[in-house]
Design a protein around this nucleic acid. Sequence first.
DNA 1: TATGAATGAGTTTTCATTCAT
DNA 2: AATGAATGAAAACTCATTCAT
Lengths: 216, 216, 216, 216
Amino acid sequence: MGRTTTATTAGPRPRADALRNRERIIDAARELAVQYGADAPLDEVARRAGVGNATLYRHFHDRSVLMRQVVLSVIERATGHAERAAAAEEDDPFEAVSRFAHTAVDERIGALCAMFSAGFDPYHPDLVQARERFDTAVDALMERARGAGQLRADSETGDLMVALSQLTRPLPGTTCPANDRFVHRHIQLLLDGLRAPARSTLQGSAVTLEDLRAAR
Amino acid sequence: MGRTTTATTAGPRPRADALRNRERIIDAARELAVQYGADAPLDEVARRAGVGNATLYRHFHDRSVLMRQVVLSVIERATGHAERAAAAEEDDPFEAVSRFAHTAVDERIGALCAMFSAGFDPYHPDLVQARERFDTAVDALMERARGAGQLRADSETGDLMVALSQLTRPLPGTTCPANDRFVHRHIQLLLDGLRAPARSTLQGSAVTLEDLRAAR
Amino acid sequence: MGRTTTATTAGPRPRADALRNRERIIDAARELAVQYGADAPLDEVARRAGVGNATLYRHFHDRSVLMRQVVLSVIERATGHAERAAAAEEDDPFEAVSRFAHTAVDERIGALCAMFSAGFDPYHPDLVQARERFDTAVDALMERARGAGQLRADSETGDLMVALSQLTRPLPGTTCPANDRFVHRHIQLLLDGLRAPARSTLQGSAVTLEDLRAAR
Amino acid sequence: MGRTTTATTAGPRPRADALRNRERIIDAARELAVQYGADAPLDEVARRAGVGNATLYRHFHDRSVLMRQVVLSVIERATGHAERAAAAEEDDPFEAVSRFAHTAVDERIGALCAMFSAGFDPYHPDLVQARERFDTAVDALMERARGAGQLRADSETGDLMVALSQLTRPLPGTTCPANDRFVHRHIQLLLDGLRAPARSTLQGSAVTLEDLRAAR
DNA sequence: TATGAATGAGTTTTCATTCAT
DNA sequence: AATGAATGAAAACTCATTCAT
């Protein structure tokens, strides 16, 4: 509900126009990250946000800070969807998972690919906290479907999150209008793969933060 | 300095060392494409191949030519696997598809992400031809499983090819040793989603070359 | 007592807090000039002074105005020391010169290096006036020692002033705690060089304002 | 005698034009360092050297590498002068020291101010070695004068070296044609201060490498 | 032919200075 | 009057591509 993104120390005056710029920059960065990946030129981000480049740097000291905020913003939106989906008790549990997944795609969850960038710290406290809340919400959603025998027992939250962000990763260097169409198709294949009963056993385990740490 | 292999036949020779350099460069480019995507620094490719940068440019006029060769090389390898898997009649048909998919991952099919780069021409004759042969082989493989009632009816070759390359796309900017592990897990989820009977209807249709053309 | 630094025309209200801010800014700028030279980031000056950057610009229209005030402030302090040293008749004359020099170092006379910056106008009336008073005081001090046969005849005020500021110039980019120690050592060497009888004839003449003008 | 600056590992072919560019860049950097200090814009260095900026970066990976080479080049030239002065036995020993000092000024020893830059590593092996040879040569020169009773007993090599580089440090932001004139005057004052018999005891000790280390 | 060298265009980042609250 | 925010210009550094040996 509340803005969890920023404000650990209460600064004096948030100032309305600065907040608006901040949001604009994050929005522009998210769109460009979905399109070009985490290496999107920051000058272009600023241009799209309609601000000077130095304004971007005032708000976000460097690319890694900006990208963290983008990821946080995406996770928080997705968390909201997951929590609302979990709360809608009347639904068919698998449908709830499925609707959540497709919604997350439309919410540009593919921007999470920024997490895979060099220089990105997946252990930043803000991020860990956001992930915990997200995992809790998605777990609840999946657990309900699992309990109803609709989801395979060995499925994990990470399967959904990482596969979602991989499948929705931008085709680099271009906006692909076809993207949205077949991304939903592939998501559907993945969801069907998550249905119970599993006819095959998954190999390995879902990706975890430790994997990302090891990757450095 | 001298040529290490002596040519015994007269006439304009392909020159053995030049061919070897060419292969080395493609190999290095494939590894770097898997790691960094299609934007891998070409000087670094040359360095890994153990040749001077200008040698790279002699063989491949620019990055798009090199990347096309990388993609061709990957497709050709994968085609070989598909053809062999289709020929092994004794197998369980779905198993054949599955084994092919996992093998393709290990063959760095993720380098196909280069196809999504700006400047890549998916209509180059060499590529069209290679894709046709690849599609034919994979179609045969999938058709066998479809005929045996093991694969959903609305599955298409493109589902496998694009989803495979998306799921195996490198985490940019870093080597992720964990990658191989969870990639196979996600591939398995996808394959399970492709099994018949489908409990849900796929939305849209698989991505085609026309989609890529439209994306430009 | 009176503010000698600025205010040729009497503005309406000096306002106590504004004056305090003004002093703080000059102090901060002097410290940073000694450390980083005349190119110290002005935002950093404001931060150290505990004011907003725009406040700095309200008081000092641009960097050159601020630096002139810093130089004025340093010259005025040094003038005070020179006048007091000259008034203390009981002293050994050379000792008085020497003590003045070492004191000036501790008073951050090194900030005078700002005078050598591009954009600095050494002919600004305020500065000319301050220099005249300073030169008068130091001349008196040196003349006394010269008259007592303790200082070489060809020594000039400029020798002391410029050499002092060069020798005390900050090692750029870093705070050097060792600085203070060896600066005094070198000052002492210089002072010994100024003693009579001179065994060598100085070449050229001391630097003058005309030299600085010619330098533009 | 041989070029000690580079070539620790014997690369294959030095290539004449590359060496020429390398020298040109160092020369340009030295001149600009004398003029603007160690923060001279590297693009400007390249422009003066008559090469593209990237050529500069090919030869010197970053500013600190370039500046180290500049310092090495200056030290090596000065070493040559000191060794020749020490070898000229017929001279008056103090005159030899004096002539060396004035010559070093003309050789742009002021470029040594680059050593005071942030990011400069005074412990780089090449630099330590060059300094040792320089110190040895200057020590010999000063020792001869000390032995002849012409130089105060507590004088040290560092006094000359640091004071020289401080006194000849560029007036930042401008070429000052008057500089050469009064620099020689101040050097002369310093040299006279070094003459025996000392009438005052030097305070502290000369600056050493340890001081620079402590400064970081 | 193979190669190291050269280069200009592009990107990130900093900072003096102006603007709006 | 005081301030935080905004901004464009500059400067370090990278890289694809061309040139000369």
